Computed example of a mutant assay.
Amino acid sequence: MIWNLGSINIDNFYEVPHLPAPGETLAALSYGFGLGGKGANMSVAAARAAARVSHIGAIGPDGRWTRDRLIEYGVDTPHIAQIEVPTGHANIVIDPEGENSIVLFQGANVHLTEAIIGAALSEASHKDFLLMQNETNGQEYAATTAKSLGLRVAYAAAPFEAAAIERLLGRIDLLVLNEVEAAQLEASTGKPAEALGVADVVITLGAKGCRWVSNAGEKHFDAYPADAVDTTGAGDTFTGYLVAALDRGMEMEVAIDLALKAGALMVTRRGTADVIPDLKEIQDHFGI
């Protein structure tokens, strides 16, 4: 079982001829909206990877449909609170090469209470996963509570803030971050990934794949080729699939391979949570 303390956003998408420069006004070529937020993306990915996942989060009155959408995608939602703060949202501009620029409003995501988090984790079982990202409050309380209950803690270090990770060191079992974030964390702590005291660190490298750093050493995994049209949500898909595979008892190498396949298929689609591939689609696409 995965307990995901995560953000829920309303994503607004704008296709543009190129990413805007400072002071530039662009006319969008198209507009769309959907379910997003790193937390919601990861919950959907984990559910579509055949794991059971319960989302811990908050929405405003304008976001009731996001909770309904999560239910449709197989995510448990009893611990999503509705509060009197607007739902978080993101305005995403995407260029023809699939690169993006995002403006994020945190909204209800940073108004979680310890009572909301504690009520959810009181239902958790030993060896369940607590998954978190840096788009909500309550991370330290959640991690401390989870470790006291014997849960495994997975942390996706985005949006990146070195201090947020440093506050959680000693309570993280799996850390997922990208190459730039890994370099920034090393500069802040003075320690490379293998010296952080985290059992498993997975560093994503975009089109170059990823690195897995553990007590047993380091291993590189190549990415699967893909014709990218939109990179939004690809990292969240990777992480959701990775944690789901580990929760289902797969070895790390097999879990990473599945997560890379999911990420490669995700970048061929436009959108976020609503277009995350399910396990059968990945199996069919890669012939597994």
Results as ranks from 00 to 15, higher is better:
residue 7 S to G: 10
residue 10 I to P: 01
residue 16 V to K: 10
residue 19 L to C: 06
residue 22 P to K: 09
residue 22 P to I: 06
residue 23 G to S: 09
residue 26 L to S: 05
residue 29 L to E: 12
residue 36 G to A: 08
residue 37 G to L: 04
residue 37 G to H: 04
residue 41 N to H: 02
residue 43 S to V: 00
residue 53 V to W: 00
residue 55 H to P: 10
residue 56 I to W: 06
residue 61 P to M: 09
residue 64 R to G: 15
residue 65 W to V: 14
residue 70 L to W: 04
residue 71 I to S: 12
residue 74 G to E: 03
residue 77 T to C: 14
residue 80 I to M: 11
residue 82 Q to P: 02
residue 85 V to P: 02
residue 94 I to C: 10
residue 94 I to S: 05
residue 101 S to I: 05
residue 108 A to Y: 00
residue 110 V to A: 13
residue 112 L to N: 07
residue 116 I to A: 15
residue 133 Q to I: 08
residue 140 E to I: 11
residue 147 K to F: 01
residue 150 G to V: 06
residue 151 L to K: 10
residue 151 L to V: 14
residue 151 L to C: 13
residue 154 A to H: 04
residue 159 P to M: 07
residue 161 E to H: 13
residue 161 E to L: 13
residue 168 L to V: 11
residue 170 G to D: 07
residue 174 L to T: 08
residue 174 L to Y: 13
residue 177 L to A: 12
residue 178 N to L: 08
residue 181 E to Q: 13
residue 183 A to E: 15
residue 186 E to C: 09
residue 202 V to P: 03
residue 206 G to K: 08
residue 207 A to Q: 12
residue 208 K to P: 07
residue 209 G to D: 08
residue 210 C to M: 14
residue 217 G to F: 09
residue 221 F to N: 07
residue 224 Y to V: 05
residue 231 T to D: 03
residue 243 V to P: 08
residue 247 D to I: 01
residue 250 M to L: 15
residue 252 M to I: 10
residue 259 A to F: 04
residue 266 M to V: 05
residue 269 R to I: 08
residue 272 T to H: 05
residue 273 A to E: 01
residue 275 V to E: 02
residue 277 P to S: 05
